[in-house]
Computed example of a mutant assay.
Amino acid sequence: MKYFIDGLLLGFAYVAPIGVQNIFVINSAISDKRMRSFLTALIVIFFDITLALACFWGVGSLFENAYILKMVVYLVGGIAVVKIGHGLLNSEIKAPTESAETLPISKVIVSACLVTWFNPQALIDGSLLLGAYRASLAPNFALLFIVGVCIASMTWFVSLSSIIATFKYQMSVKILTIINRVCGIVIVFYGLRLIYIFLENAF
Rank of each mutant, 00 (worst) to 15 (best):
M1T: 11
M1A: 15
Y3D: 12
F4E: 02
L8V: 09
F12N: 05
Y14S: 11
P17F: 07
P17E: 13
G19L: 08
G19C: 09
Q21R: 03
N22F: 09
N27Q: 12
R34V: 12
L39A: 15
A41R: 09
F47K: 01
L51V: 06
L51P: 02
A54L: 13
A54K: 02
C55M: 11
W57K: 06
G58L: 11
G58N: 10
G60I: 05
S61E: 14
L62W: 07
L62K: 08
L62P: 02
F63Q: 07
F63G: 09
A66N: 13
Y67C: 03
I68C: 01
L69E: 00
V73A: 07
L75V: 06
A80V: 07
K83D: 04
I84L: 12
H86P: 00
P96T: 00
S99A: 12
A100K: 03
E101N: 10
A112P: 03
L114Q: 05
F118P: 00
L123Q: 08
D125R: 04
G126F: 02
A132T: 11
Y133W: 04
Y133I: 12
R134M: 11
A138D: 14
A138V: 08
A138I: 08
P139W: 00
F145D: 05
I146K: 05
C150E: 09
C150I: 07
S153L: 14
S153V: 15
F157N: 04
S159Y: 01
S161A: 15
I163Q: 09
K168R: 15
K168Y: 04
S172K: 06
S172T: 12
I175F: 11
L176F: 03
I178F: 07
I179G: 10
N180Y: 01
G184Y: 10
V186P: 04
G191L: 09
L194P: 00
I195E: 02
I195D: 01
Y196H: 06
I197G: 01
F198M: 07
E200C: 03
E200R: 10
N201F: 03
F203K: 08
